[in-house]
Design a binder for these strands. Structure first.
Length: 181
DNA sequence: TATTGGATCGCC
DNA sequence: GCGATCCAATAG
């Protein structure tokens, strides 16, 4: 289990540090293999870029707060807020390598072959929804060390129009559970 | 009130 | 490859 001070760093740093960590929730777990950073007020790809709203104000909370939002009316995106209070930033968890509770994940997912290799897929497999928005990560989830040695690929983020050139997506090189792009 | 996605799936 | 899906937040 990581200390809460682990999350008090800029989003791009936290995004890299979260790779290879194990995330556990309600008997399910997986290794974080792909993340994206959304950092500061000046990141055009970030929700908070155009100003603080009722939804994105959670990005100003203390690092380690959960930020969940519904994407395309269908899928929940799970983010961990980065950095100190009032400094905006979040890390989107895009893909996991499943470890425990695979039968439950298969029950929730229609496509049994692709349980956790996308930001909307793994939240569906884990049964994550808006109930966890604004909660502290340590309340229901636990994040702990798992992998130690791996190479990190730094590349561009997926699905955004603005800030698409910034290399703020990170994934574990060679891992088969990276989302499609 | 009307529009719109940081995605996924199924069907061409 | 491309359109349908679904709904909360945002903009107007």
């Amino acid at each position: 289990m990581l200390k809460s001070s682990f999350f008090l760093k800029p989003a791009r740093e936290l995004a890299k540090n979260l790779l290879g960590k194990k995330i556990s929730f309600s008997g399910l777990s997986g290794i974080i293999v792909e993340t994206e950073a959304y950092e500061g007020f000046n990141d055009p790809g970030s929700h908070i870029y155009k100003g603080i709203t009722n939804r994105n104000k959670i990005m100003l909370e203390e690092g380690g707060t959960i930020y969940i939002y519904l994407c395309c009316g269908l899928y929940y995106m799970f983010n961990i807020v980065a950095d100190k209070k009032d400094i905006p930033g979040a890390v989107l968890i895009r893909a996991l390598e499943p470890l425990e509770g695979i039968e439950i994940m298969q029950k929730r997912r229609k496509n049994k072959k692709h349980l956790t290799d996308g930001p909307g897929k793994w939240t569906q497999a884990f049964g994550v929804n808006l109930d966890w928005n604004g909660k502290r990560i340590e309340e229901d989830f636990s994040i702990s060390l798992y992998k130690h040695k791996f190479d990190i690929v730094e590349t561009t983020r997926i699905g955004i129009k603005d800030g698409a050139d910034l290399k703020l997506r990170f994934y574990i090189k060679g891992n088969p559970f990276i989302s499609k792009n």
